[in-house]
Design a protein around this nucleic acid. Sequence first.
RNA 1: GGAGAGGUGGCUGAGUGGUCGAAAGCAGCGCUUUGCUAAAGCGCCGUAGGUGUAAAAGCCUACCGGGGGUUCGAAUCCCCCCCUCUCCGCCA
Length: 422
Amino acid sequence: MLDPKIIRETPDLVRAALAKKHLTVDLDAVLAVDAAWRAQLQEVEQLRSSQKAANTAMAALPKGSAEFIAKVQEMKAVSAQVKERETQLKETEEKFRQAMLSLPNLPHASVPEGRTPEDNVIFALHGSQEESLPHALPHWEIPGFEKLFDFARGAKVTGAGFPFYVGDGARIVRALLHFFLDENAKAGYTEVSPPIFVNAASATATGQLPDKEGQMYETSDPLYAVPTAEVPLTNFFRDEIVEESALPIYRCAYTPCFRREAGSYGKDVRGLNRLHQFDKVELLKWVHPATSYDELDKLRVDAERLLQKLGLSYRVLLMCGGDVGFAQAKKYDLEVWSAGQKRWLEVSSCSNFEAFQARRAQIRFRAKDNGKPELVHTINGSGLAVPRVLAALLENNLQADGRVKIPAVLVPYFGKEYLSFA
RNA sequence: GGAGAGGUGGCUGAGUGGUCGAAAGCAGCGCUUUGCUAAAGCGCCGUAGGUGUAAAAGCCUACCGGGGGUUCGAAUCCCCCCCUCUCCGCCA
């Protein structure tokens, strides 16, 4: 959510910033609702004020006196009017809230211009896709793949995109998660194991609701299965004021992630590329606004280090205005090279939300200098998502004998040097 | 799931229809005094929105778990929901 004062006082700046995201937003409609709301608010407040004054006067009068009774009669009319106007005010207020929730975050000045994914800037390139093995295959074509990653039985038991991981398949997933969590702990992130269902208030605070409910699985309670640990993690401090000295706060969490992914098709959904349930470790920071862009870069580097240690080639994309996303002010994507598919796979998305989530979630810190509460900035990114890292690992490290060489850092977690499909 | 008790400011805790944004204590901040890590006295000490301003101050309104209702008037009465605690049941 944006600061209402910003759109009121500098609507042209807001318009220009939103144009950079290439989203059509009717800011004038929002401003009109805002003006109406303020006008109605003042009217209601004036009525309430007169009610209060009368109340004080009546407290001093004898209960049954003529003046008292006259006053009661007089205030009945005011009371009825307050009720009527308050109802209108609430309707307008709700309209205003919805309008504000519909406004996307403004992109940061350092975000490049652009409309489509083709306009994203290649920010960095590590390793090389030329090194890809001659016998690299798309992972789903590796002989024996379906024994370790059983999509057919997953489809029978649950549905498409819910695979079973069996034997070495399960073991490599656990090894990766364990490795990620240990590395993140070393980098200063406190591990959290959060609830994997959240309520509507939490999903609204991080930006999943309203409008994106179709991307989440909803239970009858109603609760939402988390699409990412970002949601419960960010909401940990919802409606709280932390001390400035506590910032920055670094946390990480492993959760399964659930996404309906309606509308996906083709090569994007083959094998491990896109699942309805997958495992991910999320990195999250609550920081002082003055430091948030430094902290974003540091978080991105923390995520990159994981890929480096696994010996995977990857590139960093700086997303252009049109590809930044609704809630983010700036975003980097980490994409790993998939030698068998000969394409890049997104394994992490590192973003600064500035105060967009913090305002929705009312997460503040008490400033040391004036003691006043101020909104924090939130930053998050995957560190990392398992299935696509795994896809790249299987493809890039596939040996001539059909086994997969396990990166040295992972061997202690996996327990052996080769993964076997036999 | 059943029965009961309860949710008030950073904390403890008064307040059962009117001048209550809310006593008191603690914590915190400031000042004064006493020659010394402490004590005493006095003052300040919530959040949000609107308005106002260069910025403040000021003014107005809301908020006593959340949402409705009754009433001229609700922290206080009624209804629904959420959460916590105790007991029972069930269970990993």
